[in-house]
């Protein structure tokens, strides 16, 4: 079952939910940029964004009463946001390595 959000927490829920996804995107974007340009400073920024996303998620957890099994969802989201950019990065590198090794024309 669910425990609805208290009306005084509406704003907090909307803001923290948006901050969760935006923080996750900031983390993913900065992470990719840091790896692309090989700059550690951007990587620090990336993990700060992730920390902000995680903090927003924890605030959301409290405001939206994500108790019991719902906390499993929160943990999965935290892990997903952290690891998915790493996975996609490796896929990018691997698929573009194939491209470099291939002499076939575009679209082949």
């Amino acid at each position: 079952m669910i425990e609805p959000v208290a009306p005084e927490d509406f704003q907090r829920v909307f803001a923290t939910a948006a901050a969760t996804v935006l923080g996750g995107a900031g983390y993913a974007g900065l992470f990719a940029w840091a790896r692309l340009k090989n700059r550690r400073l951007w990587l620090v920024g990336a993990y700060m964004c992730y920390a902000a996303s995680a903090a927003a998620m924890l605030l959301l957890t409290r405001a939206a009463h994500l108790n019991g099994a719902w906390q499993g969802v929160v943990v999965l989201m935290l892990v997903g946001y952290l690891l998915a950019p790493h996975g996609i990065w490796h896929l990018c590198v691997a698929s573009h390595r194939l491209e470099r090794n291939s002499r076939a024309p575009p679209g082949d």
Partner: peptide, 17 residues
């Protein structure tokens, strides 16, 4: 709750490309 994760992950691909 998991639906935004692929979208967030795709940011990596956009930046890479």
């Amino acid at each position: 709750a998991l639906e935004p994760i692929p979208l967030v992950a795709m940011v990596v691909h956009s930046v890479y490309d």
